[in-house]
Design a binder for these strands. Structure first.
Length: 603
RNA sequence: GCGCCGUUGGUCCAGUGGUAGGACAGUGGCUUCCCAAGCCACUAGCCCGGGUUCAAUUCCCGGACGGCGCACCA
């Protein structure tokens, strides 16, 4: 069985994830996380929050998932997400009608034209299907927007959309967030939440869905002054797959530390490089296999026009760990983009608020500035309703070209018409002003993580087989930090005395904050296997010795190796917590307690 | 959206124009056993709609869902 099939089967059978609404036939692109999957995902989110929010000193917000249309006009999603598809009547291929028109004619931005007009252009330029050459004239063009539309309020209401990414919720609230940050750059805002895309064709199960969870950080920086704390991750080694290597048939990975990647210019942005390092460490911590992981640079055509540099984190999910970058099945699990001031500038242009930060200079600066201060008592009577526009034009001209005010009169263009006024009336002068600082539109560095795909990766990378006493075993080698259940507790046999001890241990461990499973059904081997399959790192078994000897001891079994140690119940909770916490290991138990000699063989 | 293939207990499969069988899993019991053991019993299924037929899980058409390829993935 392929890894993908085995994982899907395990996910369904053991409650990690499965298609939603199956009782009603299901809907493509929607998945429900069952108890194990929801716990795993929750733990991944908590680990992300710990690393990217808490440890970076950032702030997390929670914005609505439904936002009004103007937000997406500003962000570009309304146009950019809108595809005009025309389907060929001969071969059935779908193509972007706007692209075809742009290629065949000198029409630009066909995307912004109304559908009937594009249909006419297709006919007028006798555009043929790029795949089979059949004429496309007369075919109807389907409009498809990847955003889910909804109506806000009763009646016709206000047009709204489910957000296609969590990021806009941060950008749009920037004016308040910068106040909260007391106008000091740099600062970072995170959000973990659902986003929605009405995918044409959802595929690959949980990897590409119509509703999914993102964990995003928007790091706002001053492009001139703010540098990342690069030294913290300087020595983290990265497997990089730069664009030039991707375009070369014999392309190879470039292994470099964060410091080297910056020095050699492989990663253009220091901020991006910093977060590649942070992410690499984090992925390692939650259990992503470094041999099946890489950072891939976007190819020039793939990159959004505003992104100076963009890298994706990718994981291999079919079981192939190869030095050949073209081998294996890679999925994108995070993106790291330097977005410049694109997002905030867009919202500044469309929205009402101030999307800049005022940065004070160390010393106030005296600057000379050419200004026009038109005499409105003259302009008013002369130009009537246009007086304001004339004054604005004069002020703009003064800033742009002070020399225009050297003559007796000055001419500006208002509504395409030349308007001449006396220079005296324009009241032009060079003004000396003291400036305490300047308004800066912050640049944005955006590490954006797909939580569902990360969960899938952890299952794929943790998935393992071995033989225990000749019997095949499936186990999930999940990191203790993200495993759905911390520890399982079993009475070795159905015996009231053993069960009582086991029940007490369950209560104690739960009181200590651990996630505990209890299972007394079936023989002990069967119960170990159940827990192995859902990735429970530790199992505690109460046996006869537990109730016969003093002090009371129990065995603790390690999921991956099946090794066991005998630990006094009094010390159990503290010892288990030690193993489970970030950086902990079963090795410490092996070193501190008697190993239980069993004749169980593992191969 | 298009093309090809598929859909049978929880999971994975077999099979049939007269409504089904296995394996594994699950539940109860015996066994009291530290790695899916054994024995007994039990639970549980033909994706949906239409057509052909005396009769459809089976054949035909459509749909939904899934897999793969194409397109799409801002």
């Amino acid at each position: 069985m392929s890894d993908a099939r085995a994982i899907t089967e395990l996910a369904k059978r053991r409650g990690f994830f499965f298609g939603s609404n199956e009782a009603y036939g299901g809907v493509a692109g929607f998945y429900t996380f069952g108890p194990e999957g929801a716990a795993l995902k929750r733990n991944v989110e908590a680990a992300w929050r710990d690393r990217f929010t808490v440890r970076e000193g950032n702030d997390e917000i929670e914005a609505p998932t439904i936002m009004p249309e103007p937000v997406f006009e500003a962000s570009g999603h309304l146009d950019g997400f809108d595809d005009m598809l025309v389907e060929c009547g001969e071969c059935g291929e779908s193509h972007r009608a706007d692209h075809l028109v742009e290629d065949a004619s000198d029409v630009e931005e066909a995307e912004s034209l109304p559908i009937p007009e594009v249909e006419e252009l297709v006919a007028e330029y006798e555009i043929a299907c790029p795949s089979c050459g059949a004429a496309l004239a007369g075919r109807s063009i389907e409009e498809f927007n990847l955003m889910f539309a909804t109506t806000i309020g009763p009646g016709s209401g206000q047009q709204g959309y489910l957000r296609p990414e969590t990021a806009q919720g941060i950008f749009v609230e920037f004016p308040r967030l910068k106040e909260y940050a007391r106008n000091k750059l740099p600062f970072g805002v995170t959000q973990i939440g659902r986003a929605y895309r009405n995918e044409i064709s959802p595929r690959k199960g949980i990897v590409r869905t119509r509703e999914f969870t993102q964990a995003e950080l928007e790091q706002f920086v001053d492009p001139d002054d703010d540098d990342p704390p690069l030294d913290r991750v300087a020595d983290v080694s990265l497997r990089l797959y730069p664009a030039d290597q991707q375009e070369d048939p014999d392309g190879e990975y470039v292994e470099a530390t964060v410091a080297e990647a910056v020095e050699e210019g492989i990663v253009a942005s220091e901020w991006v490089a910093y977060y590649l390092g942070v992410a690499r460490e984090w992925y390692d911590r939650i259990g992503v296999d470094g041999d099946r992981f890489r950072f891939r640079q976007h190819l020039p055509g793939e990159r959004a026009h505003y992104a100076a540099d963009c890298w994706d984190a990718e994981s291999e999910v079919s079981g192939v760990a190869s030095a050949d970058p073209t081998a294996g099945d890679w999925i994108e699990i995070a993106g790291f983009a330097y977005r410049g001031d694109y997002d905030l500038s867009k919202h500044a242009a469309h929205g009402d608020d101030d999307f800049t930060v005022f940065e004070q200079y160390d010393e106030p600066r005296t600057v000379e500035r050419a200004v026009a201060d038109p005499d409105m008592s003259v302009l008013g009577p002369e130009f009537g309703g246009r007086a304001g526009d004339v004054a604005d034009a004069l002020r703009a001209l003064a800033e742009r070209d002070p020399s225009a005010f050297e003559g007796e009169t000055v001419t500006v263009e208002v509504d395409g018409e030349a308007v001449t006024v006396d220079t005296d009336v324009a009241n032009f002068r060079i003004e000396e002003r003291t400036e305490a600082g300047e308004h800066v539109t912050p640049h944005v560095v955006e590490p954006s993580f797909g939580v569902d795909r990360t969960v899938y990766t952890l299952i794929a990378h943790g998935y393992g087989h071995d033989l225990i006493d000749g019997e095949e075993r499936t186990y999930l080698s999940l990191s203790p930090e993200v495993a759905p259940t911390d520890v399982a507790v079993f009475p070795l046999v159905s015996d009231a005395a053993l069960e009582e001890v086991a029940d007490d241990i369950v209560a104690d461990l739960r009181a200590a904050g651990l996630s505990v499973a209890h299972d007394d059904s079936g023989n002990i081997g069967r119960r170990y296997r159940r827990q192995d399959e859902v990735g429970t790192p530790l199992s505690v078994t109460v046996d006869h010795e537990s109730v016969e000897e003093t002090p009371t001891t129990v065995t603790v079994r390690d999921r991956d190796t099946t090794a066991q140690v005998r630990v006094p119940v009094d010390e159990l909770a503290a010892e288990l917590e030690g193993v489970l916490e970030s950086g902990g290991s079963f090795e410490t138990l092996l070193a501190g307690y008697d190993r239980v000699e069993t004749d169980v063989t593992r191969s």
